[in-house]
Amino acid sequence: MIDFILWVLQNIVLAPYNLLVALINPGAWLNWSNPEAVMRFIYYGASVELFFVAFTTFLVITVLGLVWKREILWGSVLGLETMANGIGRVAAWAGLLMVLQQVMIVFLQRIFRVAEIQMGPMGTAFAQDLSWWAEELKLYNAAVVALCVTYTFVQGGHVRVDLFYSNMKYGTKRLMDMFGCMFFMLPAATITYLYAWFFMWRHLMTPSVTATSDLDRMLMQSRIFRWNVETIGFSPNGFNAYFLFKILIVLFCVLTFVHAMAFFWRSLLEYIEGEESDGKYLDRDGFSSEAEEIEHAIHTGST
């Protein structure tokens, strides 16, 4: 146990140094014309060093907000929640595109008997079979799920069926929220990200990389590195850009991890400041009627 604590403290102390080295040597991991730089990017993208840079940043902001200015924490919460709302509100339009494209496919296929759809934005023709466009609808659905998850969290849209939580006092609820962030939300997002990161890269390049590969081995593999973006569909004329789903999984994990920190800070501040700070600076979309507000509150368990 002592060795583990010392290991954690050592990585926290080294986090600023590791971040500084990465910032002053961008060519070592951002020059993607060099296969070794790509391998370094892949390795450090899911490394212990990156995790402790993020964790140390979280600790520093938390300490500064508590012992110096509480506005630092409120500013961080407001910034991250604004980011979540902005991404979610833009990504939500994919739902409308999905409906319109589905209607267009049905009309073209069943009524006009068209076999393919051709588009020519800016003079560049892009033609695909109707089955390609039909399977591509799944990408819109995945984008809504992956990119609107934190927006839905900010809006209080996730369904809660929590018999114990609903009967707790205000301060106890905030403590439970902080506990859930630290021991459930952050670990789950981290573990999922570690799997998703290497899962994504295995469909973008060769040779295959794994979470157990060390940096030296990956640098040796860079000698045979080549891009090999996945373009295989489930059917001959079907959608063939499934690597985009892998990228969305990674984005989902990053957004969840970042918003877990924001929700922890909000719960901490609301616990310290009391009920008068409940929902402070919270930007939630309104409803057209009071009945819809009540229905939403019942549906999400926030009543």
Rank of each mutant, 00 (worst) to 15 (best):
C181T: 05
C181K: 01
M182K: 05
M182D: 04
M182S: 11
F183T: 11
F183A: 02
F184G: 04
F184S: 05
M185Q: 05
L186S: 00
P187S: 03
A188P: 02
A189D: 04
A189V: 05
A189T: 07
T190G: 02
T190W: 10
T190F: 10
I191Q: 06
I191V: 15
T192V: 08
Y193H: 12
L194F: 12
Y195H: 10
Y195A: 13
Y195T: 12
Y195D: 12
W197H: 15
W197N: 08
W197R: 04
F198Y: 15
F198T: 07
F199R: 13
F199S: 15
F199A: 14
F199W: 14
M200W: 13
M200S: 10
M200P: 06
M200C: 10
M200T: 14
R202C: 05
R202W: 08
H203K: 10
H203V: 02
H203Y: 14
L204I: 08
T206I: 04
T206H: 05
T206L: 06
P207S: 01
S208Q: 11
S208P: 03
V209N: 00
V209P: 00
T210V: 03
T210W: 04
A211R: 01
A211V: 02
A211K: 00
T212E: 02
T212M: 02
T212L: 01
T212P: 00
S213F: 01
S213D: 08
D214Q: 01
L215E: 09
L215R: 03
D216S: 10
D216E: 13
D216I: 01
D216C: 01
R217E: 13
R217Q: 12
M218Q: 04
L219W: 05
L219I: 08
L219N: 02
M220Y: 11
M220W: 10
Q221P: 01
Q221H: 04
Q221I: 00
Q221N: 09
S222I: 06
S222H: 05
R223C: 01
R223L: 05
R223F: 06
I224M: 03
F225Q: 00
R226P: 01
R226Y: 13
W227C: 03
W227L: 10
W227T: 06
N228Y: 11
N228P: 06
N228V: 02
V229E: 14
V229R: 14
E230P: 03
E230G: 03
E230N: 14
T231K: 15
T231S: 15
T231N: 15
I232K: 15
G233M: 09
G233D: 07
G233F: 07
F234R: 12
S235D: 09
S235T: 15
P236G: 10
P236K: 08
N237W: 10
G238D: 07
G238E: 07
F239E: 02
F239D: 03
F239M: 07
N240H: 11
N240R: 12
A241H: 14
A241V: 06
Y242E: 10
Y242F: 14
Y242R: 13
Y242K: 11
Y242D: 08
F243I: 10
F243K: 05
F243W: 15
F243D: 03
L244I: 12
L244A: 08
F245H: 11
K246H: 14
K246R: 13
K246W: 14
I247R: 02
I247W: 09
I247Q: 05
L248E: 09
L248F: 15
I249Q: 12
I249E: 13
V250L: 08
V250C: 13
L251S: 12
F252N: 08
F252W: 13
C253Q: 05
V254N: 04
